[in-house]
Design a protein around this nucleic acid. Structure first.
Lengths: 216, 216
DNA sequence: GTCTATAGACTGATAGAC
DNA sequence: GTCTATCAGTCTATAGAC
C-alpha cells in the first residue's frame, strides 16, 4: 500500500536552505497536527514553532493540505512496509516477536507521527478516503492470509486473523497515542527505555501464548 | 476516581425544555468534539448540529470549556466504575472475560465518547491535568494490585500488571477509536454485531490464554 | 428563555516590496 | 527566497431586543 495524494514531494536536488527549512517546517507541523489535528492546527502555530514567517510555509508547501499530507504519509509508509515483511513461509515464533518489537519501537521513536494518524482516523479519515479503497481491503486480506497459512500449518491456534491484526496494531500504537495517560499512571520520572522493554516483553508473551505459538 | 472540574452539572429539577435542549446540545457536542477535538470544534458547528442558535449553547453551558467537560466526564466515569469492579477475591477466569466484554460493549455503544477521550489524550490531556494527579497514580496502583494478588494466588502467570491493563484498555478502545480503519479493512457492509462478537471472542481467548488463566 | 446582531480576535491565503 | 501587510472569512462570547 502506497499513499498517493499528489501532494508535496521533497525535492532531493533542492538547495541546502530549502532542505533545512522544509525539515524545520515538517517537524513543527508534525507536533501541531499531532496535538490539534488538521482542523485544529493553524498555519501560524506551525510557523511560530518552526521559527519562520507564516508566508514561508505557504511558499514551501502550497497550502495547509499539502503540508498535512507530507506529514501523514510518513508514518503510513513506515507501518505498511514493516507489516508487509510478514511472510507465510516465515516462522511466526520468530517474526511475530520481531514485528511487535518493531512496532513498539516506532511508537517510541515517532510518537508524534503515530498521533497524527490517530487524529486523522478519529476525525473520520476524510483525508485518507483515497487510501482506504478497495485496494486497502485487498491488501488487508492478503496480510490476513499470512496468519491463516500459519493456522493451517499448525503453527498457531485458529484465531480470527483480522482481530489479531487489530490487537497487534492497537496494543503497540497505544504506547504512542496514549503516552500521556501511561505517564500519569506510572509516573513520568520512569525511564522510557525500561518502560518499552517491559512493554515489549509483556505484549510478546501474552500475544504469542494467546495464539498458541511455541517459543524457544 | 471521579472527574471533578467544577463545571456544568445537569440540574435534575430543571424544566422539560431545558432538559431536552441540554440533551440535544450534549449529543451534538459529543459528535463534534469526537471528530475535531476541543480546539478544532466551533460552537457554531455544535449549534448547527443541535438545531439551536449559537447563543443558546452559551446560555445553557457557560462557555466552550464547560460544554467540553460535561461531555468528557461521562466516558471517564463509565470506564473507571467498570474497572473498579475488578476485585482481588474474584476469579479472573470469570471477571476478566466479563470486563473485556463490558469494555467492548462501551466501544460499540458509546464510540463518540471514547473518541472524545482519545482526542483529549492525543492533545496532551491539557484539560485532564487535575484528573491525572497523584490520586490517579494511587488508584492505578491499587487496580494493578488486584492482578498482583491473582498472580500471587497462582491464578495467572507472572505478567506485568500495568502493561496488561494498557493492553486491555488499548485493545478494547481500538474498536471505537479506529472504527474507520477497521471498516475500511473489513468492509462497512459487515454487520456490527458479528464484528463485536468475534472481537470479544478473539480478544478474550488471546488475553486469557496469554495470561495463563484457566477457563472452563 | 430565545435569538439577532455584533464586537474583537484569529483563520488561511496572497500580493507585492525587498 | 524572504517577509510585511492585508483581505475576506470564521472564531468565542456577549449585549440587548423580544
Amino acid at each position: 500500500m502506497q499513499l498517493e495524494v499528489g501532494a508535496h514531494r521533497a525535492d532531493k536536488s533542492a538547495g541546502r536552505i530549502r532542505q533545512h527549512n522544509e525539515k524545520l517546517i515538517l517537524t513543527a507541523a508534525e507536533q501541531e497536527f499531532a496535538r490539534y489535528g488538521f482542523k485544529g492546527t493553524s498555519m501560524q502555530q506551525v510557523a511560530d514553532r518552526a521559527g519562520l514567517p507564516k508566508a514561508n510555509i505557504h511558499y514551501y508547501f502550497n497550502n495547509k493540505l499539502g503540508l498535512y499530507y507530507a506529514v501523514l504519509s510518513n508514518i503510513i509508509d513506515l507501518w505498511d512496509s514493516s507489516f508487509n515483511e510478514l511472510d507465510a513461509h516465515d516462522d511466526p515464533a520468530v517474526v511475530l516477536p520481531r514485528y511487535i518489537a518493531t512496532k513498539l519501537d516506532f511508537s517510541r521513536r515517532y510518537p508524534q507521527a503515530s498521533r497524527v494518524f490517530a487524529m486523522e482516523i478519529l476525525s473520520g479519515g476524510p483525508h485518507l478516503s483515497e487510501y482506504f479503497q478497495q485496494d486497502y481491503r485487498d491488501w488487508f486480506r492478503g496480510r490476513a492470509a499470512v496468519f491463516e497459512h500459519w493456522i493451517a500449518a499448525g503453527k498457531m491456534k485458529p484465531i480470527d486473523p483480522a482481530h489479531l491484526i487489530f490487537l497487534l496494531w492497537g496494543s503497540t500504537q497505544h504506547y504512542a497515542d496514549f503516552a500521556v495517560q501511561i505517564d500519569a499512571a506510572l509516573g513520568e520520572d520512569r525511564p522510557q527505555q525500561e518502560l518499552y522493554e517491559t512493554a515489549t516483553r509483556t505484549l510478546t508473551e501474552i500475544i504469542l501464548d494467546g495464539c498458541g505459538i511455541r517459543r524457544d
